[in-house]
Computed example of a mutant assay.
Amino acid sequence: MRRLHNIGRLFTGTQAGVIEKAAIICDDDEHIAWCGRAGEEPIDLLGYVAHEDDCGGGLVTAGLIDAHTHPVYAGNRMAEIAMRTAGASYEEIAKAGGGIVATVKATRDASYKTLEKATGERLRKWLEGGATTVEAKTGYHLEREGELEATRILKRLSERDVLPRIEVTFLAAHAQPPDRGADLGKYTKQAASWCGDAYSAGARFCDVFCDRGYFSVSQTRRILKAAIKAQLIPRLHADELARTGGARLAAELHAASADHLLRANRGDAVALARAGVVATLAPGTALSMGRLPPVKDFLAAGTTIALGTDHNPGTSGITSMSVVVAMAVAVFKLSVERALLAATVGGAASVARLDRGAVAATMLADLVLWDADHEGAFAWSYGLRPLRVWRGGAQVLS
């Protein structure tokens, strides 16, 4: 067993709140055996402790959870990012041959071996921002074998204990393929038919980009119903570019999460809350798009909020959830406590996991010691640095 001691402040994410002068005992099976005030450790557990980690009076939290990323890609889109800063819209860039389809061309040209290596190296960076779980999507092949192989790549990477835990999402329905003669209606049927194979390849979720210029509500419903039949958990990009009904569809299907929601309204917030759907928000993307989601409406409705980097080659190069927490405070006007809860407890809800996101007995021992003695530092440093990260009680970053 391993004991973390001399913890100045332990942000538990539970009703226990913050425990000062705390300690944690991790068992040998990746879980927390006990946590509480130092000096109150059960004597029977102390006898099994073989490793001691002195936290130097610092702040410890549960590992952060990035609930929205697109890490499997090749190439970059820096030129179009410059276009956006000059005033070009998302749709204008797409019509000019940029956007998602530009990454599709580069990703298809890359070998699967190259993609797997690059994605693994990329995902390692999340630990440097304190994230121990990352939801990761496919979506840059837009053809059957490429999407399934991207799923397999993420599944293989999820088995590496030197990386964050990876929650694999099948996002074949990311956009219309750039191929000659491609038709969104026809592609909808194809993407729906691949869901069973995606589940076999290792996907746990299925996502659809439900928005203006992409998949309609009826097309999204068709794909996600096929996904549910294939035992995939539904989630969706919703109401980001226009309010097309994505949030309401997420509520109808009791999806795990509806993401972005820049154009959602108060009624959508209520519908999500009543259906138990998490609102996964990405402050970096909201800033990039020049519009903020209705955070106050989500809070008033009691909607669970999660946070994500939305790491992708077009709008967000962020890999640090510590930065995202700071941005959620500054941009969404969340308190530090609410932002941290969204990045831990809320993230766990978004990826439909009950075994992480909080520091308590029986939870996974995914923990972070921060270069700070108080959680207020998240709102001050814009990228608070982890001193140590433990995944299942094993140190993976120091």
Rank of each mutant, 00 (worst) to 15 (best):
D268I: 10
Q176K: 14
V270Y: 05
A301E: 11
D66N: 15
G47C: 12
G87V: 15
Y73L: 06
D53I: 10
G139Y: 00
D54G: 13
L148M: 04
Y199W: 13
G75T: 07
L148W: 02
G146I: 04
E128I: 04
Y214D: 01
S216L: 02
R243E: 04
V351Y: 06
G314T: 11
T315C: 07
A275L: 00
K137W: 10
H51V: 15
L287E: 11
T151W: 01
F205W: 01
V134M: 07
G120N: 08
H254P: 02
E240H: 13
A50R: 12
Q231C: 12
A172W: 00
T138W: 01
D211H: 09
K225T: 12
W194H: 05
A50Q: 12
D211L: 11
N265Q: 14
A343E: 12
E375T: 03
P313S: 08
G87M: 13
L367Q: 12
A269H: 02
T85Q: 11
A198Y: 04
C206W: 01
A82V: 14
M83G: 04
V217Y: 04
A394F: 12
T319M: 08
D366W: 05
A182Q: 07
S288M: 15
E92G: 09
E240M: 07
V60Q: 10
S335F: 11
R204F: 07
L123W: 07
P178Y: 09
G57Q: 11
H237I: 12
V104Q: 02
A94F: 05
T220W: 00
Y214F: 15
K225A: 02
C55Y: 04
D268W: 03
V217M: 10
D54N: 13
G392E: 08
F378Y: 04
G284W: 04
T132S: 06
A150I: 09
A96R: 12
T188D: 13
A328N: 08
K189V: 15
G36P: 07
G376D: 12
T151F: 01
A242L: 14
P313T: 06
Q219W: 01
R204E: 07
L157Y: 04
L334C: 05
A172S: 13
D183K: 08
A286P: 02
M1R: 11
S89D: 12
N76I: 03
N6K: 05
G185V: 01
I81N: 00
G8I: 12
Y214V: 05
V18W: 09
V323C: 10
R77K: 08
K186T: 15
S398P: 00
A377R: 11
T119P: 00
